[in-house]
């Protein structure tokens, strides 16, 4: 009791543990909670509506034809075969171009760059900013590049791959840097103290430990590239393709472009086709994101 008296003497108002202003169940707290729920509800409602409408509209055309047939003027005969192949070709090219380059750039910035040098800090800042540049700008950049080199035709697989690789490069750099940074410095020091060179340390310790993070970041970046249409439209990607791409120099279309083109047609049948192709694209994206989450959880290092 003596201590209680002392507390009171010190001006401590609370001599009971009962809440003074409603605590967890005050009107403000409840109101705020409802505001959060409402925001969540709006977001989920829109997503849900979009998915349900797309599935209902696209279901009749979501058949084998979609995978086996080329585009056609008759919606009943048309399919997205060329777009599916085109997307696979372009995304594969993008991955081959962007992943090694992004990982190498991130490794340099994290492990070798002297951060006291202003140019290294400038590069870092720019990489961060590049991730926020609108995708169409990368289309323009690629267009300019190809024109300078002297290409007349710009709608081939490699060009699309370059544009998308430029688009996702900053994302891969940032993800890889995060992965490298999460490797404890004890590992680095242990390796160097055993007479390993910095290069051997990166190659034998840092990068192998960073693979899950790099894979997760790369897959998420590629799934973004898979859904992009703007830079490819700028390069003049074809909308009516009746052949499979066969090489890096083949003309191509991709799924988002095919969807875009079908949506613009007057016939109802094409709208259904667009919805069906959208379902396919959504399923692909869900699979890729699921894979990324799986890798992240499965290989998460507990240091």
């Amino acid at each position: 009791m003596a201590s209680l008296g002392k507390l009171a003497a010190q001006g401590a108002a609370a001599t009971t543990l009962k809440s003074q202003n409603g605590g967890e169940y005050s009107a403000r707290a409840i109101g705020f909670l409802f505001a959060l729920w409402f925001s969540l509800f709006v977001a989920v409602l829109f997503l849900g509506t979009l998915i349900i409408v797309t599935v209902i509209e696209g279901a009749p055309k979501f058949s084998l034809n979609l995978f086996t047939e080329y585009s056609s003027s008759n919606p009943d005969n048309a399919g997205a075969r060329a777009a599916i192949f085109g997307s696979v070709f372009v995304i594969a090219t993008t991955a081959v171009l962007a992943i090694p380059l992004g990982v190498a750039a991130a490794t340099y910035l994290e492990e070798f760059a002297d951060k006291r040098r202003w140019w290294n800090r400038l590069i870092e800042l720019n990489v961060q900013n590049l991730a926020a540049v609108p995708s169409i700008v990368y289309g323009l950049l690629t267009l300019g590049l190809l024109a300078t080199v002297g290409f007349k035709s710009k709608n081939f697989v490699l060009a699309g791959g370059i544009a998308l690789a430029l688009l996702i490069l900053p994302v891969i750099v940032i993800a890889t840097r995060e992965a490298i940074r999460s490797v404890p410095s004890e590992i680095r020091q242990g390796s160097l103290a055993l007479g390993a060179s910095p290069w051997q340390t990166v190659w034998r310790q840092i990068l192998p430990s960073s693979i899950p993070g790099i894979a997760t970041g790369s897959i998420l970046a590629l799934s973004r590239a898979l859904g992009e249409a703007a830079p490819l439209l700028l390069l003049g990607a074809l909308v009516y393709v009746t052949f499979d791409p066969t090489s890096l120099m083949s003309g191509f279309t991709t799924m988002p472009i095919q969807i875009f083109s079908w949506t613009g047609r007057p016939q109802e049948g094409f709208h259904e086709l667009a919805a069906a192709a959208s379902i396919l694209l959504l399923v692909l994206l869900v699979i890729m994101n699921g894979l990324a989450i799986f890798i992240r959880n499965r290989f998460q290092k507990r240091w």
Binding site: E186, I187, Q189, G190, A193, G195, S197, K301
Partner: peptide
């Protein structure tokens, strides 16, 4: 420096085995 570290080894505060 790499040769120096090979001749003069180091054991750290926290055990740091490689994964």
């Amino acid at each position: 420096a790499i040769e120096v570290r090979r001749r003069i080894g180091m054991v750290f505060q926290k055990p740091n085995p490689f994964p």
